[in-house]
Simulated scan of single mutants.
Amino acid sequence: MEPIRTILLPGSVLPAQAAYGGLIAALGPDVEAIAKDLELYTDDEPPADWTLDTEIDGVLREADARGWESFHLAGYSGGGAVALAFAAKHPERLLSLALLEPAWAGNWDWSPAHTALWKQYEQLETLPPEQFMPAFMRLGVKPDVALPPPADPPPAWMAKRPAGIRAFLRTFKTYDLERARLAAFRQPVFFALGGLSNPDDYGDIASRLSRVFFPDFHLEVFPKRHHFDPPHRIEPERLAELLRRHWAQAGVGAVVEPVETDPLETHGG
Rank of each mutant, 00 (worst) to 15 (best):
E178H: 15
F214G: 06
G251E: 10
Y41R: 08
F228Y: 07
A183H: 11
T261W: 12
G269W: 08
P223Q: 05
S210A: 15
E220K: 12
V256H: 10
L169I: 07
I4S: 04
L243T: 04
L147V: 10
E235H: 10
D30T: 12
V189Q: 03
G11E: 01
A151D: 13
A240V: 01
P150G: 09
R225I: 12
T54V: 09
D152S: 13
D216A: 10
P3R: 06
G80V: 02
N107E: 13
A103T: 12
T51Y: 02
P112Q: 01
W157N: 09
A87L: 04
P134N: 09
K160V: 03
W50M: 01
G11R: 02
P46C: 03
G253W: 05
W157E: 06
L264D: 15
G203C: 07
A65G: 15
T174K: 07
R161P: 06
F228C: 05
R244S: 09
P162E: 08
L9A: 08
A151I: 13
L169N: 05
H246K: 09
A254V: 07
P188Y: 02
P223I: 03
L23Y: 03
V212H: 03
E92G: 08
L97K: 03
D30C: 06
N107C: 13
S197G: 02
Q120A: 15
L52I: 09
S96H: 00
T261V: 15
T51E: 00
W110C: 01
L40I: 06
Y202N: 13
E69T: 14
A163W: 00
L97W: 05
P188G: 03
L193T: 00
E45C: 14
A113H: 06
R166C: 07
S96N: 01
W50E: 02
E122N: 12
E45N: 15
A33V: 03
D176A: 13
G203H: 01
W157H: 10
F185P: 08
F190L: 14
A85S: 15
A240L: 04
H246M: 11
A16D: 00
G203S: 04
P236K: 02
F213D: 09
I34L: 11
D64L: 12
I165F: 00
A248M: 04
R233D: 07
L147T: 08
L209S: 05
L139K: 14
P129H: 08
Y41G: 11
P263Y: 05
T115N: 13
G22L: 08
S77C: 07
A180W: 04
P149E: 08
A26L: 04
R179G: 12
L27M: 10
H227L: 04
T51V: 04
R5D: 04
S210T: 08
K173A: 14
F213R: 11
Q120E: 14
T6A: 15
P134S: 09
Y20H: 09
E125P: 03
R181E: 09
D216K: 10
Y41H: 10
V141N: 01
D43F: 14
V255W: 11
L94E: 05
V256R: 07
F191V: 01
V256L: 05
L177M: 12
A87Y: 02
S111V: 00
G268M: 13
H114F: 09
P129Q: 08
A192C: 10
L84F: 00
L182Q: 00
M137G: 05
R170M: 08
A206V: 02
E125W: 09
D53L: 07
A26E: 05
P231I: 08
A25R: 15
Q17G: 06
L9V: 10
R233I: 06
